[in-house]
């Protein structure tokens, strides 16, 4: 039961409290780039969840059974980024061949994810926090869900910005960033929720 509780805590904290986009500044580029329309935001969000979980499932064993046992810890960054890049390519090909319908909806976003810092970030964080394999998977799932949540919420905010009158200098990106600031302010309210989850 305690392991289950700790998993729930990891999940909640990575979705709400330590939201990657709105609290940790990871994955800002796709967050600002692809959040213009709701359907794009959802597509990107699900692709990120998918890649994060699969990447963690691959990089965790590599770190623990390959790099650690041969004292190659310093190769972590190089190995992880290569694994993620190869994995994304592979997932795209596999989806195209076996599940064309899913490829149609997610395929567009997959190549964009290779260099998404959130994916590399979550795999490295799982190692740094010395999570077990199951905890790592749950953490990645939570981070992906948090990313999706932030994207969906923000795409709603952005559709409002387009209709409003903004001073010339602030048009476009500055206004978007300031809106992001307000959304992330709302997420500050979640701080502390996890500590009292089972109290």
């Amino acid at each position: 039961m305690d392991t289950f509780k700790s998993l729930i805590i990891i999940l909640m904290s990575s979705v709400l409290v330590n939201n990657y986009v709105l609290n940790r500044f990871l994955g800002i580029c796709p967050f600002l780039g692809v959040s213009k329309k709701l359907n794009q935001a959802v597509g990107m969000g699900f692709s990120v969840i998918f890649v994060m979980v699969v990447a963690t499932a691959v990089t965790w064993p590599i770190q623990h059974f390959l790099l650690d046992s041969y004292g190659l810890g310093y190769m972590q960054t190089i190995v992880f980024i290569l694994v993620i890049a190869a994995l994304v390519q592979f997932i795209e090909m596999a989806l195209k061949k076996f599940i064309p319908s899913l490829h149609k909806s997610l395929g567009v976003y997959l190549p964009l994810i290779t260099t998404n810092c959130a994916v590399l970030g979550v795999t490295i964080e799982n190692i740094d926090e010395s999570f077990t394999f199951v905890e790592s998977i749950v953490n990645s799932l939570g981070c992906g869900l948090g990313f999706l949540l932030a994207m969906v919420l923000f795409s709603g905010v952005r559709s409002k910005i387009d209709d409003s009158e903004i001073p010339e200098s602030f048009k476009g990106l500055p206004a978007t960033l300031i809106a992001a600031s307000f959304v992330s302010m709302a997420f500050l309210g979640f701080a502390g929720i996890v500590d009292n989850l089972f109290a």
Binding site: S169, F170, I178, S181
Partner: peptide, 27 residues
């Protein structure tokens, strides 16, 4: 975190103003 977004947004607007739009602004 929100402060980071806010200051960054304002700074982009300021730089745009300073360069008088000479720098190609990304909308």
């Amino acid at each position: 975190t929100p402060g980071g977004f806010l200051i960054y947004g304002i700074m982009i607007a300021v730089v745009y103003k300073l360069t008088h739009g000479k720098a190609p602004k990304k909308t």
